[in-house]
Simulated scan of single mutants.
Amino acid sequence: MEYEFSSFTADDVDGIVSWHYDPPYDFYDMKSDPEDLALFTNPNNWDNKYAVFDSSGERVGFFSFNLDDSETLEIGLGMHPELTGNGHGKSFVEAGLKFAKEEYDPDTFSLAVATFNERAISVYEDVGFEPQETFMQETNGGKYEFLRMTLSRSLY
């Protein structure tokens, strides 16, 4: 599948916010955490956030990027619920990494994923990400365990 990246618009944000995942992945529904929802929908926070479209122009996901002082690019991402679990994850993540390399030129990529999400962890490992540490994070009205994973640019 080929992907096209476009800076966030209000239509993109509205569409993404309406996505609903089946349990247990409903944890990732934007409406699950009012604080995250407020940050996501605020246009002041749309720098470095991109909607992703397939070749037919359908919105299939999004990526967010945050370059820290140490040249590590923190990646956030989401894929349309109808596409998850259907073998599209690896090509989607690889497209995001390719885009990020061209736009940001980081030394290292980093992401965090809920530890229960073995499906996503498997995709990230297939792309070359390596587990680094687990940590607890407050979100969605509770405290959940996350796994930080990194990928050296030289490996990708």
Rank of each mutant, 00 (worst) to 15 (best):
K101G: 03
Y28A: 09
Y28R: 02
K98M: 14
N44W: 14
Y28V: 03
L83D: 03
N86Y: 13
F92Y: 03
E58H: 12
S32V: 04
Y28G: 04
G85Q: 00
N86F: 13
F27H: 00
F53I: 03
A100C: 01
F65I: 05
E82G: 15
F53Y: 13
F27K: 00
A38T: 07
I75S: 08
G78V: 02
F65N: 07
T72D: 11
N42R: 08
S55K: 14
G76F: 07
H88C: 13
D36T: 11
P43E: 08
H88Y: 12
V60F: 08
G87R: 02
N66L: 14
E94V: 12
T72F: 07
L77N: 06
G96M: 08
R59N: 11
E58V: 10
G85C: 04
K31A: 13
H88E: 11
Y50L: 04
S64G: 05
A95L: 03
S56K: 14
M30Q: 11
A95C: 04
M79E: 05
N45V: 06
L67G: 04
L67E: 09
V52N: 05
E103W: 09
G85L: 00
S64Y: 11
K31L: 13
D33Y: 00
N48Q: 10
F27S: 00
D33W: 00
R59E: 10
D33F: 00
S32P: 08
E58P: 06
G78D: 05
P81M: 03
K31V: 11
A100V: 02
T84E: 08
N86G: 14
L39H: 14
A95W: 06
P24T: 06
E71I: 15
S91Y: 01
G96T: 05
H80V: 06
K101F: 11
K49P: 11
F53V: 03
G96R: 07
D105Q: 07
S56W: 13
S64D: 11
A38E: 09
E71A: 15
L77D: 05
D105I: 03
L67C: 06
